[in-house]
Amino acid sequence: MYTDTIPTPDLTWQREALCAQTGAEFFFPEPGSSVREAKRICGMCEMRSACLDYALTHDERFGVWGGLSEKERLDIRRTAL
């Protein structure tokens, strides 16, 4: 019997991420709102690279992940093709 299982991503980094200790409103602002505070918090976070890697791997399309906005991550994905 063939089973096609999708591996569960390791999300242990999220417990240590600074965003877990702040409000989600910084990282998922209303359209047109500033992401400056989210980027500032990300800049101090030791989990930033793991977060960005997760966002790029899982095609996260909303919010600030790893210090980058939706548009910045889309630009990375486009140049990687």
Rank of each mutant, 00 (worst) to 15 (best):
K71V: 07
Y2T: 13
C45N: 02
E46D: 14
S34Y: 10
Y2F: 07
G23Q: 14
L74W: 08
Y2M: 09
R77V: 10
L74D: 11
A20I: 12
R73A: 03
T5M: 06
T57S: 12
P31M: 08
I76Y: 08
M47D: 01
I6Y: 01
T57G: 10
C19K: 12
D75T: 06
S33L: 12
Y54D: 09
M1L: 10
R40C: 02
E25R: 14
H58Q: 11
L68R: 09
A50V: 02
P7L: 09
D4L: 07
R48H: 01
Y2D: 11
S34C: 09
Q14R: 15
A24K: 10
C19A: 13
G63C: 03
L11Y: 08
D10K: 05
D53W: 05
T5E: 13
R15G: 09
E60G: 02
M1V: 12
T57K: 08
Y2R: 11
E72T: 01
P31W: 09
P29Y: 09
R48P: 00
R36C: 06
R77Y: 07
L56F: 07
E70N: 02
F28H: 07
L11P: 00
E30H: 14
F27K: 11
C19V: 12
A80L: 14
T3S: 13
E25V: 13
F26I: 04
K71Y: 09
S49K: 07
R48I: 06
G23F: 12
R73P: 06
R78A: 02
E46G: 15
Y54I: 04
A80F: 04
G23L: 10
E25C: 04
G23N: 14
V64H: 04
T3G: 09
M47N: 03
T5Y: 03
C42G: 00
A50N: 14
R77W: 08
F28R: 04
F26M: 08
D10N: 15
L68Q: 08
W13P: 03
A17H: 09
E25G: 11
R77N: 06
I41T: 01
K39R: 14
R48D: 00
E46C: 04
E70L: 01
R36P: 00
H58A: 07
S34R: 12
P31N: 10
P9K: 13
L56E: 03
A38L: 07
A20T: 14
A17M: 09
I6Q: 03
C51D: 00
R78G: 00
K71I: 05
V35E: 14
Q21K: 15
T3L: 13
C42Q: 02
E37Y: 09
E72L: 01
A38D: 08
F28A: 02
I41F: 05
E60Y: 05
L56K: 05
M44T: 05
P29L: 13
E37P: 00
V64P: 00
P9L: 12
R73Q: 03
H58K: 05
Y54V: 02
G66D: 02
T22L: 08
G66R: 01
D59I: 08
E25I: 11
R77G: 01
G43A: 08
T79Y: 00
C51E: 00
M44Y: 03
F26H: 15
V64R: 04
V64S: 07
G43K: 05
E16L: 12
L68Y: 05
A17Q: 08
L18V: 04
T5S: 11
C45E: 03
T3D: 13
G23D: 15
A20P: 11
R73E: 03
R15Q: 15
P7E: 11
L18K: 14
W13E: 06
